[in-house]
């Protein structure tokens, strides 16, 4: 029965990774850049929820909405100031700038919110359910996390495949110049992608901190890296890939921690990633890239 508990925990953690990975993968698909600051947007989102709830006593739902709004604006601002000028520069230069933004957000949080660890109170008040005569308890947090993840993925797929803005995103990710010639507003599309990605980061942050309630300025970086790993794992640029990669990564991490070694859980996650990439170099659902001579 323990196995099922671990599995459910794994799916729950994996759902959080999946939501973060969706943001990563969308931004990567459009801007072809690794947004290293994505993890830190999560952290900022958590702080906003924490502050608005504890200091100003806002209703949890209201404060989560506020946090999503703030992170969306933050994502757009970061893109405008730091990434847009480098749009046609070397990918490595953009990567380093993203790292700079990540440092900036961490240190800004350190200054504004302080270095002490905040204990995040769970914002989710949904009651849990008990299965199999009390042997298997599923907490409300887990239910909300998994359901949120599935809803978000479904909405994203609908948005991309059925709306004009979504189609524009696909076009830009396929070929920026051609999309521009066809009348797509490339800058607005990229901004929109960053907005959606950052908004998702805020949701993921709240869910992550509800499950692991310690909040410091460095909270976001490890889940950020793991989620990026998940995105690569599933095939970067692919939305279902990010979902599958995230869930699998969460399950592997929790099962590895439970059955092999708690200290080595990160190593196990990364080892699995390496094996998958060696067998399938573009990830589980990645597109095969053709080489042009």
């Amino acid at each position: 029965m323990n196995f099922w508990v671990y599995l459910i925990n794994g799916i729950s953690l994996g759902s959080v990774y999946a939501i973060i990975a969706l943001g990563y993968t969308m931004v990567y698909g459009i801007a072809k850049m690794l947004n290293f600051a994505h993890g830190d947007v999560i952290m900022i989102g958590c702080y906003i929820v924490f502050l608005t709830m504890t200091r100003y006593g806002l209703h949890p739902v209201l404060s989560v909405l506020l946090s999503i709004l703030f992170c969306t604006l933050l994502g757009i601002t970061i893109e405008k100031i730091a990434y847009k000028p480098l749009r046609r520069a070397l990918p490595l230069a953009v990567l380093i700038t993203a790292i700079g933004v990540s440092y900036f957000l961490q240190n800004m949080a350190l200054l504004v919110f302080g270095a002490d660890t905040k204990s995040f109170s769970n914002v989710i008040t949904v009651p849990g359910i008990t299965l199999a005569d009390g042997a298997l308890k599923i907490s409300g947090t887990t239910i909300v996390t998994v359901v949120a993840c599935i809803i978000i993925m479904a909405l994203l797929l609908l948005f991309i495949n059925k709306t004009k803005a979504g189609q524009a995103m696909l076009a830009v990710s396929e070929d920026k110049d051609a999309a521009q010639l066809m009348g797509v507003n490339v800058n607005a599309t990229i901004s929109l992608t960053f907005a959606i990605g950052s908004g998702l980061a805020a949701i993921a942050g709240v869910l992550f901190c509800s499950a692991y309630p310690t909040l410091t300025p460095y909270t976001g970086s490890m889940p950020g890296i793991k989620a990026f790993t998940a995105a690569v794992f599933g095939g970067i640029g692919s939305i279902p890939g990010a979902f599958i990669g995230g869930i699998l990564l969460g399950i592997i991490e929790i099962l590895g921690r439970a059955y092999i070694s708690s200290q080595l859980s990160d190593a196990i996650v990364f080892a699995v990633l390496i094996v998958v990439l060696l067998v399938k170099p573009t990830g589980i659902l990645g597109k095969k890239m053709h080489e042009k001579v």
Binding site: P85, L86, R87, A89, L90, A93, I96, T97, I99, G100
Partner: peptide
Amino acid sequence: LIAMMLFNWAP
């Protein structure tokens, strides 16, 4: 760091 990257690499 950000400023130097923008200065060095922005087209």
